[in-house]
Amino acid sequence: MLKRTIYDEEHEMFRRTVRKWAEAEVFPHAEEWREAGCVSREVWKKAGEQGFLCMYADEKYGGLGLDDFRYDMILAEEINPKEPGFFIGLHNRIVGPYLHKMGTEDQKARYMPGIVSGEIVLAIAMTEPGTGSDLGGVKTRAVEMDDHWVLNGSKTYISNGILAGLVIVAARTGDGHEIGLFLVEDGMEGFSRGRRLKKMGLQSQDTAELFFDNVKVPKTNVLGDPRRGFKSMMMNLAEERIMGALGFMARAEHAFGLTMEYIMDRRAFGRPIGTFQNSRFKMASMRTELDAGWALTDHLVREHLKGELSAEMAAEAKLFTSEVEGRVVDECVQLHGGAGYMDEYEISRLYSDARISRIYAGTSEIMREIIGRGLGLDERGRN
C-alpha cells in the first residue's frame, strides 16, 4: 500500500479522535438511518459539539478558525466508507465556504453560529428537473422588487434536502449566465419540500425535491452579486470534486480491506480462496489502481492547498477516482461470490453506493468534456 505523506502528527491525532467518535456516535446508527432514509438531526449537533463543522469559521461564530483542508479530508476518509449518507463534507466544504467567503458580516452573524453548532444543516440547490450538469440552463428565476426578490421554480436531487435549515438557491436573474445565489431559510412562505427521493444507494442520505412559489427573499439574503453567481459556482466546483475524490477512494479502500478479510477466511477446495491465482491477480490489480488513485488525489490536494488547483485537474481526479471506485467495488463483489449479492454483507451496500459516484458533482462524461476543452479540443479548435 502506498505510504501517504500528506498528513502531520496533528492530523493523525485528529484522525484518532474522529474514528473514536464515529464508532460511538455514527456507525451504530447506520442501519436505523438507512431504514429511515435520513440521518438524525442529533448527529449533526453532536458533530458540532466536537468542533467538526466548518472548522474554518471565525471563533466569534463558534468556529476554530482552522482553515486546513486536510482536517476535512480526514472526516471524509473516516466517516464516508461506513456511513456515506452523512454528508458532512457537503456541509463543510461545498456549501459552507460560500457563506464563509462571500457572506456579509450580517449574514455570517445570523447563520454561522447555527451552521457551526449543527443546528442549521446546509444544502445547495442547483440541479433542476430539466437541467443537470449544465448550470447555464437553470430556469428557476428571481425577479427584483423594491426590498426583496421573488423566487419561482423547482430543484431536484438536492442532498440534505429534508434536513436543511438553510439552502443556497441558484436562480436566473437576467440573460445569459446572470445567476444569483439566494439564502432561503426553512419556513419562508412559498418554500416547500417534496418527497424524499428513493435511491439505488446512499439510503441514509436525505435527497429531495424543493419548490419555490413566489418566495419573497429579502435583499439581505442575497449572497454576493446577484448577477455573478455563476462564476462563484464555477470557482467552488474544483474543491467539490476533490472532496468527491477523497470519498470515492476511501470507499474503494474500505471495500478492498473487507474483501481481503473475506478471501482469507472463505475456503474452497481445502484452502482460502485468496490463495488462488485469480484472487491474487485481482487483488494485485486493485491494489495498483488504489495506489495510483491515492497518489493523484494527494498530489492535487497539495496543489489545492497552494491555491493552484485547476478545473481540468480537479475533473481528472473526479473522473479517475470515481471510475476506480466502480471497478474495485465490482471486483470485490465478484470475489465475495454469492455473499456479495446479499444485502446483509457490507460489500453489497458499497456496490450500490458507488454507482452514483460517476454521476453526481458532474458526470464522467462532463469531466471528459472539461478535460478535453482544456486541451483545446472544443468546437472552436485551438486559437
Rank of each mutant, 00 (worst) to 15 (best):
8 D>I: 10
11 H>I: 04
16 R>D: 15
17 T>A: 08
17 T>V: 10
18 V>I: 13
20 K>I: 07
25 E>I: 04
26 V>G: 05
29 H>F: 15
30 A>V: 15
37 G>Y: 06
43 V>I: 15
43 V>E: 06
49 E>A: 14
54 C>A: 09
57 A>L: 03
59 E>D: 10
73 M>S: 03
74 I>P: 02
76 A>D: 09
88 I>M: 13
88 I>W: 07
89 G>M: 13
98 Y>K: 03
115 I>V: 14
116 V>L: 04
136 G>E: 05
143 V>W: 02
144 E>F: 00
148 H>D: 08
153 G>A: 04
172 R>F: 04
190 G>E: 11
200 M>F: 07
203 Q>N: 15
207 T>S: 08
215 V>D: 08
215 V>N: 07
223 L>V: 01
225 D>C: 00
231 K>L: 11
236 N>R: 12
245 A>E: 00
246 L>S: 06
269 F>Q: 08
270 G>P: 06
278 N>H: 11
310 S>I: 10
313 M>G: 00
315 A>R: 10
317 A>D: 01
318 K>G: 14
326 G>Q: 10
327 R>A: 07
328 V>A: 01
330 D>K: 13
332 C>R: 08
333 V>T: 10
338 G>T: 09
340 G>D: 01
350 L>K: 01
351 Y>R: 11
351 Y>P: 02
359 I>R: 05
360 Y>I: 13
362 G>R: 05
366 I>H: 10
366 I>D: 12
368 R>Q: 12
371 I>Q: 08
383 N>M: 00
